[in-house]
Design a protein around this nucleic acid. Structure first.
Lengths: 216, 216
DNA sequence: CGTTTCATTGAGTGCGATCAAGCCGTGTGG
DNA sequence: CCACACGGCTTGATCGCACTCAATGAAACG
């Protein structure tokens, strides 16, 4: 019992929901059945009542990344974009509650103008983190660096951009070492995909080719 | 110009904010300065006006994972827990807006009881995804499997739990192959950390040791 | 011009992937 | 009841990508 004197955050199951169940229709799903598919519209949000659910993202070349496992109480299917980036499948026989996203979003926007952008920002960051899971889990070093450069160029201007961060920052973002980042940058430059002017400024030379590399 | 006939989602910079700026005090941060530290309280939320920001998580043994880079318009510092899991540093001289989280949370709870649990769920999933970034980017195969088992055991009961998913699912969740997952499970069992009864049911034998392995 | 810090490049190693058998629980038909 | 097949899991042997260690190069700064 002496160990329980120190209460440790992680020992508390963080996802068993302490909030009420969502209002909506109940539905039963058989084990192995799909709840929603990749590219489906994001008009519905779900809460798991019983069973277990897996969300997965499948790439064109067959690589798979499981986004999360969900257990009773979890709300899932929340996405910022209109199209689903992950599909959801029942691992066991499940009971779920289905709620229209519009019932949440509408209420959100109409009542609290302040809250709208905050929830939106949260959803975006979630989406961003989930994309990053795919990158960290299933992409090669070369693809990671390519994806990073494409993303950055897309944010900071069209064709030429300045890196505000060090190689160490990039490495720690992509789950690599600075040496590997440096090698991949050199490689991409040798292949004519990008052109670096100094170590912090670059220009995309083959945008489409890079995007294909990064896509995965 | 023919390439632009097909509009591709990724070409739209998804994070340059299309929403108004948050109400709050402006603050200037010099390049390299910390905006908030790991374990700080999550009482404030920020929006970046100009410059670039990096959020990082540092583990006890010095491993570092960059959670995200933020650019003008981005809202950051949103967290579910009371203590920050990531710190935020200015990469360049920055201008930020600081808003009290209570002003958002309070408004959220009082006006829309329905919206409260949904936003909370979104924040939790974000937190969960960010934890997973750390796992995918900076943990060894052994640590990944240990973390997975500890997490699952924490959710599905105290000492014994049933895995609802296959080895392939686990592998795709942890960014490994089924062979490596299997090897690590065997390894952890040989070392006396867990005991498997069949391939789907297990029991933690050294909870604290496993947690130390998984912690990173 | 020297010093410091950050980035690149090279050589060798090791962790996890790949390829390839076996193993085991389950279901099916003789 | 046993023979067989099938899918999921485990174990072994080998390979290769990214890491480590080490040296060099290139900016930034005093």
């Amino acid at each position: 019992m002496s160990a329980s004197i120190i209460s440790i955050d992680r020992d508390i199951p963080r996802r068993s929901s302490d909030c009420q169940t969502l209002p909506g229709a109940r539905r039963r799903i058989a084990a192995g059945k799909e709840i929603y598919a990749q590219d489906d519209s994001t008009t519905e949000v779900y809460q798991l009542v019983s069973g277990a659910v897996r969300t997965t993202h499948l790439t064109g070349d067959g690589r798979r990344q499981v986004g999360a496992f969900h257990y009773p109480g979890d709300i899932f299917g929340l996405e910022y974009a209109d199209a689903r980036r992950f599909s959801a499948e029942a691992l066991t026989d499940c009971e779920i509650v289905v709620a229209a996203r519009s019932s949440l979003q509408g209420l959100d926007d109409s009542v609290a103008t302040l809250n709208g952008p905050v929830w939106t920002a949260t959803l975006r960051q979630l989406e961003y983190a989930q994309d990053h899971l795919m990158l960290l889990g299933r992409k090669t070093a070369c693809e990671k660096v390519a994806a990073f450069l494409v993303d950055l160029a897309g944010r900071l201007g069209g064709e030429t951009a300045e890196l505000p961060m060090s190689r160490q920052d990039i490495a720690d973002y992509l789950g690599l070492t600075i040496e590997t980042v440096s090698r991949m940058v050199s490689h991409l430059q040798a292949k004519g995909f990008v052109e670096f002017l100094g170590s912090r400024r670059f220009r995309l030379r083959n945008h489409e080719g890079l995007r294909r590399l990064a896509a995965a």
